[in-house]
């Protein structure tokens, strides 16, 4: 059983690896520790057979990935609990969940999962791995399924030619960007969305291709501030 620190590392490596290759410098930045500390801990993880290192990048071994998914599962279940049951704000639960996650035994996880009615995603829209270490590859919903007031994060843009992706990126819409739906035109018309300080009208067909994280459980109507 890895220590809490090692679990934190595994979790971080897993999350970074979702976006691309993981380098020690990124890990140091993400964990907010010095590079020598990272090197030392990575040494311990490598000795435990949880990670491998190949030309400067860090990769999880199969065991490491299972351990990471396990901690990710606990973290996301904890977040869900904090938001759904205790009513904390979704943008303030991450730190709390980091504390809670280490205390959840498999039994508590099962109970929690049942109590929360088998949630598939965390409050930020990321998938919650199953107890068997499985994780949903595709997550999120098309932007057009959201209503006025929803704040969502772009997960990906389904666009085989890449033209839409390239055009949207010139407007400052990338995977990871937050989008607020302001208005939806009637008869399945376009959506009016707010990205940073700009507003765009997006046709239904475009909004279908933009996959976003599911909105925060309760459709809260955020007046202002959240996107700043």
């Amino acid at each position: 059983m890895p220590s809490a620190t090692m679990e934190e590392y595994l979790e971080s490596i897993y999350k970074l690896s979702e976006k691309g290759q993981v380098r020690p410098s990124q890990l140091a930045e993400a964990m907010d520790v010095s590079p020598p500390t990272v090197t030392a801990t990575l040494g311990r993880l490598q000795a435990s057979g949880l990670v491998e290192r190949a030309d400067g990048s860090i990769e999880l071994t199969l065991t490491g990935r299972q351990a990471a998914l396990d901690i990710v599962r606990r973290h996301r279940l904890a977040e869900r609990f904090l938001v759904d049951v205790l009513g904390l704000r979704w943008d303030e639960v991450h730190e709390e969940a980091c504390q809670l996650e280490h205390a959840l035994s498999p039994r508590v996880q099962r109970a929690l999962q049942e109590f929360l009615e088998n949630p598939s995603v965390c409050p930020h829209g990321h998938p919650i791995p199953g107890a068997d270490g499985s994780i949903a590859e595709a997550q999120g919903v098309p932007l057009c399924e959201n209503g006025p007031g929803d704040v969502v994060e772009i997960v990906r843009i389904e666009d085989e030619q890449g033209e839409m992706l390239s055009y949207l990126s010139s407007l400052g819409m990338f995977p990871g960007t937050n989008v607020r739906v302001c208005d939806v035109a009637p008869f399945k018309g376009p959506l009016l969305v707010e990205v940073g300080e700009a507003r765009y009208a997006l046709g239904r067909d475009v909004a279908e291709k933009i996959v976003v994280s599911e909105p925060v459980t309760e459709k809260r109507r955020v007046r202002k501030g959240i996107l700043r």
Binding site: L168, L171, A198, L202, G203, D205, V206, K209
Partner: peptide
């Protein structure tokens, strides 16, 4: 096809 609408407001 009629191209998708993306318009800055």
């Amino acid at each position: 096809d009629s191209q998708g609408l993306v318009m800055e407001m």
